[in-house]
């Protein structure tokens, strides 16, 4: 259960109303989720298929005795998977009392964002329906789409 991300030290977090996000890649696009919702990031575990479940459910995994459903966003939004198999990870997040994991192509970094690099969603174009995007963050010419986790688990 190796944690892949090194959290930046406290001094790097300057903005008072900023948030920290975990950034990852789905296909060629870069996404991010609020770090407070991320429980851990794990290598691909063996996933048990759940028959008769929704198409975007990849299956369930055993996370230290807990059964955690795994969501396949590639399948849900027809995103072509890209990159090395070796780099794929499961980002396990929790929302209220609920836990789930998303398969991502690569986890890149942890970023500190403040509110002025985040823009409204309706201007965004991505593979994903804008319902699932809370906003977009611009950092050094890179764009990060902020995922709305609540929408994803609905």
């Amino acid at each position: 259960m190796d944690k892949m991300v090194n959290l930046p030290g406290e001094e790097e977090l300057s903005g008072d109303d900023g948030i920290q996000v975990v950034a990852f890649r789905l296909g060629k696009e870069e996404y991010a989720v609020d770090i407070l919702h991320v429980q851990e990031i794990v290598r691909l575990l063996s996933i048990t298929r759940v028959p008769r479940s929704a198409r975007h459910i990849e299956g369930v995994v055993n996370l230290r005795g807990n059964i955690v459903p795994i969501i396949n966003l590639h399948r849900r939004f027809n995103i072509e998977s890209a990159g090395e198999e070796e780099d794929k990870r499961i980002v396990v997040f929790h929302f209220d009392d609920f836990k789930a994991g998303i398969i991502v192509d690569e986890v890149s970094e942890v970023l500190a964002l403040n509110s002025n690099n985040i823009e409204e969603t309706d201007k965004v174009y991505s593979s994903m329906s804008s319902d699932f995007i809370k906003g977009i963050a611009r950092v050094d010419n890179r764009l990060f789409l902020l995922l709305d986790l609540q929408k994803i688990i609905e």
């Binding site: 759940v50 028959p51 008769r52 479940s53 459910i57 369930v60 059964i67 955690v68 459903p69 609920f98 836990k99 789930a100 688990i153």
Partner: peptide, 9 residues
């Protein structure tokens, strides 16, 4: 339990 996301299959 499979949790609420997968309940009722």
């Amino acid at each position: 339990s499979l949790g609420k996301m997968l309940a009722g299959i």
